[in-house]
């Protein structure tokens, strides 16, 4: 059986909020290392990969592998019934028909309990090759969100160019063009504002802004976001969570003819 207690319901609320517009039905794969989810969007252009390590829960118990097929719309409805600070416990039997969610308020003695019916989801698992990326940019997640939002007003695509000069986000649209240039930056007082660029070779790739704007819904999960790029491979956008848990998005680059 599965029993996983989260100190704050807020974490799961934010994760589900960040991915529910990309993927609708997905398996939450539970085993003794934690709860994982991997799903592609309908167009197979973007992929979500979530890992909530067992250490992110206290306690965490999962005796055998359980796949919880959940509709994220249904999960969103139930998670709205939780206060952000509620303690959240997920429970399921070994061959479950439902997943049980218990929300406990630490301040009052209120305990609420919900069951969500599970679905049989035949989901293909993709092998994501280990990649040594040519460029890794770590930057404030709010800054990345702003760049994507600003440029999406002008164009459908953004080119991300990384060189020893820094990183340049460029777009061309019907009304004109825009570009934002960032350099490495260290703020001793506010390290969450740091921009770190780790480059082994120059990279230039083009991506759909629609998907990037969507990924940025995860900005509330982490102050910083990591962008990993190599020429001709999908972009990795990573929001690190505590205890080595993470929410990652992959996006296939656009290719010019």
């Amino acid at each position: 059986m599965l029993e996983a207690r989260l100190e704050q319901a807020n974490l799961l609320k934010k994760v589900v909020d960040a991915i529910k517009d990309l993927v609708q039905d997905c398996n939450f794969d539970c085993n003794d290392s934690g709860i994982a989810l991997q799903a592609m969007d309908n167009s197979h252009v973007a992929l979500v990969s979530m890992m909530l390590k067992s250490e992110s829960f206290s306690p965490f118990r999962c005796d055998r592998n359980i796949a919880l097929g959940i509709n994220l719309g249904s999960l969103t409805k139930v998670l709205r019934c939780a206060q952000n600070e509620d303690i959240l416990t997920l429970k399921a039997e070994d061959a479950p028909d439902v997943v049980n969610l218990v929300f406990e308020s630490a301040e009052t003695d209120r305990i609420s309990e919900y069951d969500i019916k599970l679905m049989d989801i035949d989901q293909e698992h993709l092998g994501i090759p280990e990649t040594e990326y040519a460029a890794t940019i770590t930057m404030p997640s709010a800054e990345f969100q702003r760049i994507c939002r600003d440029l999406s007003a002008l164009s459908e695509s953004v080119s991300i160019e990384c060189s020893k000069e820094g990183v340049k986000f460029n777009c061309q649209g019907d009304i004109g063009s825009g570009s934002i240039h960032l350099r490495s930056h260290t703020n001793v007082d506010k390290p969450e504002l740091n921009v770190e660029i780790d480059l082994t070779e120059p990279v230039s790739l083009t991506f759909s802004l629609k998907y990037l704007v969507n990924f940025c819904k995860a900005s509330g999960l982490s102050n910083q976001v990591k962008l990993c790029l190599s020429n001709e491979v999908p972009l990795l956008v990573e929001y690190a969570l505590s205890n080595n848990s993470y929410l990652r998005f992959y996006l296939a680059p656009k290719i010019g003819d």
């Binding site: 293909e124 992959y250 290719i255």
Partner: peptide
């Protein structure tokens, strides 16, 4: 014109 390939090109089914 710009072409948008899918991720299936890059990641293999397990």
């Amino acid at each position: 014109p710009i072409h948008q390939p899918t991720l299936d090109t890059y990641f293999c089914s397990r």
